[in-house]
Amino acid sequence: MIGYLRGQVLVKQGNTLIVETGGVGYEVSVPVSVIEQVSQGSESALFIHHNVREDGHYLFGFIDLAQRQLFRELIRVSGIGPKMALLILSGFSVDSFVRLVREQNSAALVKLPGVGKKTAERLLIELHDRVGKTFAGVGEDTSVDQPGHDAAVETEEALVALGYKPAAAAKMVDQARRALGDGVHSTDQLLREVLKSHVPRGL
């Protein structure tokens, strides 16, 4: 399965990119926020959700792991397909959407084209517990007063994407921060420290 692509953006059209790497051009569907951050002819890096269906292989690209994880949570909701999930991610950042779910703000969702009241309410209900666990700390104002908070959150999200449970990921990151000592640590530093400990998956 393809999980990451880095290469030159050959085509940028609508919500689709063609990214050339190793002499192969990959067609990738992306949210508007990604389209706005890449330039045709430049090199870009994308985290990929690879969807295999009977009629073909489909790639969906995201600027970071948090955005990809939210996409995966969205398509698990009944009645929400990849197209609708990309629309939602085009209308909201990860932070703003997580805050919207916590507040159960369906009024903001129904402003998106194609999202009705019943769909919005079902989506918010189904995501409430999952988003609360997977994106703990995201969308909260306390990050302003917590140096290194963003790196910790990104490390937790990376571990969740690797298959660890959210609670286990949070515990592992906390242990890594203590092991590294005082100061502000980057996502790479935290992730390296976590992986050094060889903690079994699923704890």
Score class of each variant (00 low, 15 high):
residue 75 I to G: 01
residue 120 A to F: 12
residue 87 L to V: 10
residue 77 V to H: 09
residue 90 S to I: 14
residue 114 G to P: 05
residue 121 E to K: 13
residue 96 S to H: 09
residue 117 K to S: 02
residue 115 V to P: 02
residue 128 H to C: 15
residue 99 R to E: 07
residue 99 R to A: 08
residue 98 V to L: 03
residue 122 R to D: 15
residue 88 I to A: 06
residue 100 L to K: 10
residue 113 P to G: 10
residue 132 G to L: 03
residue 109 L to W: 04
residue 132 G to K: 03
residue 122 R to W: 04
residue 131 V to A: 08
residue 98 V to R: 00
residue 104 Q to M: 13
residue 76 R to K: 08
residue 103 E to W: 05
residue 116 G to N: 07
residue 76 R to I: 08
residue 110 V to W: 15
residue 129 D to F: 13
residue 119 T to S: 10
residue 91 G to A: 00
residue 131 V to Y: 06
residue 86 L to F: 08
residue 106 S to C: 10
residue 131 V to K: 03
residue 99 R to H: 08
residue 93 S to D: 06
residue 104 Q to K: 11
residue 119 T to N: 06
residue 105 N to S: 08
residue 79 G to R: 09
residue 132 G to P: 06
residue 99 R to D: 03
residue 116 G to C: 10
residue 98 V to N: 00
residue 96 S to M: 10
residue 87 L to K: 11
residue 131 V to Q: 09
residue 124 L to G: 03
residue 124 L to E: 04
residue 131 V to W: 05
residue 92 F to I: 01
residue 92 F to V: 04
residue 118 K to M: 07
residue 107 A to H: 05
residue 74 L to P: 00
residue 119 T to E: 01
residue 87 L to M: 15
residue 92 F to T: 01
residue 104 Q to S: 13
residue 102 R to G: 11
residue 101 V to K: 06
residue 131 V to F: 05
residue 88 I to H: 02
residue 116 G to I: 04
residue 127 L to S: 10
residue 83 K to Y: 07
residue 133 K to C: 15
residue 118 K to D: 05
residue 85 A to W: 07
residue 89 L to A: 00
residue 98 V to F: 01
residue 109 L to T: 13
residue 121 E to N: 12
residue 125 I to K: 11
residue 76 R to L: 07
residue 105 N to R: 03
residue 130 R to W: 06
residue 109 L to V: 12
residue 102 R to P: 15
residue 133 K to Q: 15
residue 80 I to S: 00
residue 74 L to N: 00
residue 76 R to S: 13
residue 93 S to T: 09
residue 123 L to P: 12
residue 125 I to T: 15
residue 116 G to H: 09
residue 111 K to Q: 13
residue 97 F to N: 03
residue 82 P to A: 11
residue 88 I to P: 06
residue 86 L to W: 05
residue 114 G to Y: 01
residue 93 S to R: 09
residue 81 G to S: 03
residue 102 R to D: 11
residue 119 T to A: 05
residue 108 A to G: 07
residue 97 F to G: 05
residue 125 I to R: 08
residue 132 G to R: 02
residue 75 I to M: 04
residue 88 I to Y: 10
residue 75 I to P: 00
residue 84 M to N: 14
residue 120 A to E: 04
residue 87 L to Y: 04
residue 74 L to C: 02
residue 105 N to C: 11
residue 110 V to L: 15
